[in-house]
Each structure stands twice: as structure tokens, then as C-alpha cells.
Simulated assay, not measured.
Amino acid sequence: MAELVDSIELAVFERLIDVGKLLERRADRATREHTGIKYTQYEVLIRLRNAGGELRMTELAKKLVSTPSGLTYQLAQLEKAGLAERVIAPGDERGVLARITEQGRALLREVSQAQNDMIVEASIAPLTREQVEQAHRILGALQLHLRGEETGGLIPEDLAP
């Protein structure tokens, strides 16, 4: 049985939860304002783009920390908007791939500066460069522990500035 957490450990946990919710709320507001879609849908497009354009639905749900039914709903909304599509995986009739469309890629290009500005304002500007790098390492260690891999910030070479 684990020892009881002390007050600073409890505060770290509570702050991580709080900051995560605040960032997600801000990201959703900015994304809706600039794209008309929810941040959860925008994140689907980002994950697909960063994976080279397509992923199996099961893998995408895992990366998004989403339920299969939740992802199916988000993808259906993206399909209606012409931003993504579902296709049968080659050689596997039961496997389904989620794929970003050219219209989805165009949307990401169009809003990239607005998203960049929101990210800087919400999470980078209040910190020093050293704090940003420390946060990157600390959050990566938590991801590795909880998810089994570090994710985030993986911009495909052809999209890097």
C-alpha cells in the first residue's frame, strides 16, 4: 500500500488536473472561433496529419485517450464537414482507417498561426525557456508512465517551420 501523499504532492496532482481543464477549455474556445469545429475534432485532424494522414481507428482512439464510440462520433462530425473520412484497411476487411482529407489539411494550414498564438499566450509566454524545457521533461515522464510513450510536439518534417 502506497504512503499517503503529502500536501505538495496533492497540490501537484490537483494543479495538473486544473491546468489541463483550463488549457482544454481555452483551446476549444479558440478552435471553435477559428474553425467552427470542436477542439476534440481539431485534435483528431492533428493526430491524423502527424501520423502521415491516416491511422487505424483503434490506434487513433488510444492516442486521443478516447473511447471507440466517442471517436466514432467525432469522426462522423468531421466526415460531415468533409475534413476526414473512414475507409476499410487494405487487406483487413474488419479494420477501419481514419484519414484526413485535403480539405482537413487545408483547414489546419489556415488556422496554424491562430493556434500557434493561442498556445504561446496560454502556456508558453508566462514561463521562462528553462521552465518550458523542465515542463516538457516532467510531463513527458508522466506520459511515459501513464501512456507508455511520450507524445506531443511531433511536427512532420514537411510541416516544420
Rank of each mutant, 00 (worst) to 15 (best):
E3T: 05
D6Q: 10
S7C: 04
S7V: 10
V12M: 15
K21D: 07
K21Q: 13
D28E: 10
R29H: 07
R32H: 07
R32C: 06
R32L: 11
G36L: 11
G36C: 12
K38T: 05
Y39V: 04
E43W: 10
E43P: 00
L45V: 03
I46P: 00
R47S: 03
N50A: 08
A51M: 06
G52F: 05
G52Q: 09
G52V: 07
E54Y: 12
R56C: 02
M57Y: 01
M57W: 00
T58F: 10
K63E: 10
S69G: 03
L71W: 01
T72Y: 10
T72N: 12
Y73F: 09
Q74A: 09
E79A: 05
K80F: 03
A81I: 03
A81P: 01
L83H: 02
A84C: 08
V87P: 01
G91R: 06
G91K: 07
D92R: 13
G95L: 06
V96I: 14
V96Y: 00
A98R: 00
E102L: 15
E102I: 12
G104H: 01
E110H: 13
Q115F: 08
N116E: 11
D117R: 15
V120I: 14
E121I: 07
E121A: 15
E121W: 08
A122H: 01
A122P: 02
L127Y: 12
T128W: 04
R129T: 03
E130F: 12
E130N: 08
Q131A: 14
V132N: 00
V132I: 13
V132F: 02
E133W: 06
H136Q: 14
I138T: 14
L139S: 13
L139Q: 09
G140F: 07
G140C: 12
A141G: 07
A141M: 13
Q143H: 09
H145G: 04
L146W: 13
L146E: 07
G148C: 07
G148H: 08
I155Y: 02
D158N: 15
D158V: 09
A160Y: 12
